[in-house]
């Protein structure tokens, strides 16, 4: 009786651990952390240490959004799409960080990839996300920033240099680590 209960328990625990491990391995597509300090180069290129290429897009309300207008403020450029699960998973964390650092000037530009205004507007309003959402309907900025996967994030400091990048979703810790590189936290 004791043995069967012990075995049942062992099996149950084993099943959960196998499930959790498999899930973690499957979903750990979050890129690698960057700990080294980047060398700064005064050229425009979508790489850490370089100046973030400028762009101008319109948000879903038709309002113009230009990156260079935010010089002097730390900027998080997040390329995303409504169909992308990791983008959806990291948005609550971005909202929490935006709420926390908005007072010290953090600007978040959520560049949506090739979707129409109504789709983006509905998703953003349903989720109560409050940062700026420019739409890259022709994919020009996506090409400029050589974005190959969603979400991809660029962390731009107050001088306009890219201090960190992230291909794939970020959890709380990953986001905080990168925000620290642009002088937040």
């Amino acid at each position: 009786m004791c043995n069967s209960s012990f075995k049942r328990r062992l099996n149950r625990v084993r099943t959960y651990f196998v499930l959790i491990t498999a899930l973690s391995l499957l979903l750990t597509a979050c890129g690698t952390s960057e700990s080294e300090k980047v060398k700064l180069v005064s050229e425009f290129s979508p790489r850490p240490g370089y100046l973030a290429p400028d762009f101008e897009l319109k948000d879903y309300n038709g309002k113009s959004v230009k990156l260079s207008n935010f010089k002097g403020k730390p900027v998080l450029i997040n390329f995303w799409a409504t169909w992308c699960p990791p983008c959806r998973a990291e948005m609550p964390e971005i909202q929490a960080a935006f709420r926390r650092y908005a007072g010290v000037g953090l600007v978040v530009l959520g560049v949506d990839a090739r979707e129409d205004e109504s789709t983006v507007k509905k998703y953003v309003e349903d989720g109560s996300y409050t940062w700026i959402m420019p739409l890259d309907q022709r994919g020009e900025v996506i090409n400029t920033y050589r974005v190959t996967a969603f979400p991809t994030s660029f962390f731009v400091d107050r001088e306009g240099f890219i201090q960190a990048t992230q291909i794939g979703g970020m959890d709380k810790r990953g986001l905080e680590e990168r925000l620290a590189k642009i002088g937040l936290g």
Partner: peptide, 15 residues
Amino acid sequence: PDILATLIKLKDFIV
């Protein structure tokens, strides 16, 4: 996508 997003969040919490 919301189902996968939930699984990703679950993974985040577990990690």
